[in-house]
Simulated scan of single mutants.
Amino acid sequence: MIKRMFLAVVLLSVLVVSCSDDDDNTTSPNSNLTLNLNGLEALGDDYVYEGWIIVDGQPVSTGTFSSVTFPQTFSVNTMQLNEATMFVLSIEPAVDPDPAPAATKILAGAFTGDLAMVDSNSIVGDFSSASGTYILATPTDMDDTNEASGVWFLDNSSGSPMTGLNLPTLQDGWKYEGWAVIDGTPVSTGTFTLVDDFDDNATTSPFKGDSGDGPSYPGEDYLQNAPTGLTFPTDLRGTTVVVSVEPFPDNSPMPFTLKPLAHMVPNDAMTHTVINLGDGPVASLSGSVTR
């Protein structure tokens, strides 16, 4: 009788342990979320990328990262992950007192089953139809001998300055920035959000001349206070002109990865004459997110 009771207790214990193991396996609170993203660049020490899933219309963080080597996998609450309708990637301060996503969102996409195909087109801007023109000129000084030392994103083919850039309105958290890559060094023309108005540094640029701010379009005269290793005035023929899309705020003095427009200035380019921009090296970012 005692032996039979002992065996019953042993069998009951085995059953309880087995059931407990099954419960643990079926009620695990977290599941894996795997990111495979293309084209992201390291942000430096002050900023990180942060993933978000949208659950019942609310953002839920999936974690931050600074490495841009993929795939990367994150452990996320299973119930929330299963209910998520969308994935969004933002750029956040490395030390961030705000638990909500920043305005600077770089990738987004809706889940279809366990897969979300994400891209930058809907969350930053769609540059598939972007185009533009520029001229070489230095309107901020009275010297006509250095006209190839300035670049202005406008169209003067009608005899009067007109808008030269065809670019979409950016979402919050982003700005455009012009560049001239001089002897391998990118030198900013200034940031801007409107293609038909002064850029943000029109009145404060250290490079422009002393005779005004130039026309009310994005652009820059490289006439004085050259960065170390360069000499102003210069000749922009043979250099590369770029329009990039920059996070705002932006802690890097270098162009961001999104560069929808670019053009190497012809060696025989005439000053005060319209030149067409071409497609830039990176107009969109993309990737996949798997739950």
Rank of each mutant, 00 (worst) to 15 (best):
A84R: 02
F74G: 06
L261D: 01
S205Y: 09
G190N: 07
Q171M: 09
I106W: 03
G173V: 15
A130P: 00
S20M: 04
G51L: 06
G209V: 09
T185W: 02
T27M: 12
H263Q: 13
F74Y: 11
V17Q: 07
E92C: 09
G229W: 02
V187D: 02
D199A: 09
P71T: 07
F198H: 14
A202M: 14
A42H: 06
V151H: 01
G214I: 00
S216G: 09
L15K: 00
D143Y: 00
W179Q: 01
T26Y: 12
S31Y: 01
P227L: 04
H272N: 10
F87A: 03
A202E: 10
S160C: 01
E246C: 04
N82A: 15
Y176G: 13
L15H: 03
G39K: 00
Y49H: 14
L115S: 10
Y134H: 03
L170S: 06
L7A: 14
N251V: 12
G150H: 13
V151R: 00
F198A: 13
P139H: 03
P255L: 02
K175Q: 08
M117D: 10
R291Q: 10
P99E: 01
I275G: 02
I135F: 07
G44Q: 08
I135L: 08
K259G: 01
L11P: 00
S128Q: 11
G212I: 07
G159T: 05
P161I: 05
N156Y: 06
L236H: 05
G159P: 08
N201L: 10
V243Q: 06
S18C: 11
